[in-house]
């Protein structure tokens, strides 16, 4: 399929992820939506990589996957710590910057 289809799909995936980030109250779901966004980016990279026949896109995507893993780990750790303190993961309630 022409690359543009993949690009549109990747943008759509990114958009869905953004919607999830902006509109969900549960912090856990928000983190999942962030993963969706990253995957959208990966898809675009790989599509271009195939079109140009250049493996650099793959390398970049690889690094992004590794990065996403690290970020998910740390983010979840923070979330757990936040939950311990505030007993909630509802983002509407966790808006105070200083206790």
């Amino acid at each position: 399929m022409p690359t543009i289809y993949y690009l549109i799909l990747s943008f759509a995936l990114f958009l869905i992820g953004t919607t999830g980030v902006l509109l969900r109250r549960n912090a856990l779901i928000v983190l999942m939506a962030i993963e969706l966004q990253l995957n959208g980016g990966n898809l675009a990279l790989i599509a271009f990589s195939r079109q140009l026949g250049d493996l650099k896109g793959h390398v970049f995507a690889f690094l992004i996957i590794a990065l996403a893993a690290a970020e998910a780990a740390v983010g979840l750790a923070i979330l757990v710590g936040l939950f311990r303190g505030r007993q909630t993961v509802n983002l509407d309630e966790i808006t105070l910057m200083k206790r």
Binding site: R25, N26, L28, I29, A68, L76, V80, V89
Partner: peptide, 26 residues
Amino acid sequence: VYAGAITVLFIFVVMILNREEVTPLS
């Protein structure tokens, strides 16, 4: 990595703080 490790991480945390929401979207 994704479907394996990261998902497992998410499952763990979901298990720790499993709460349903009344109205998911704000």
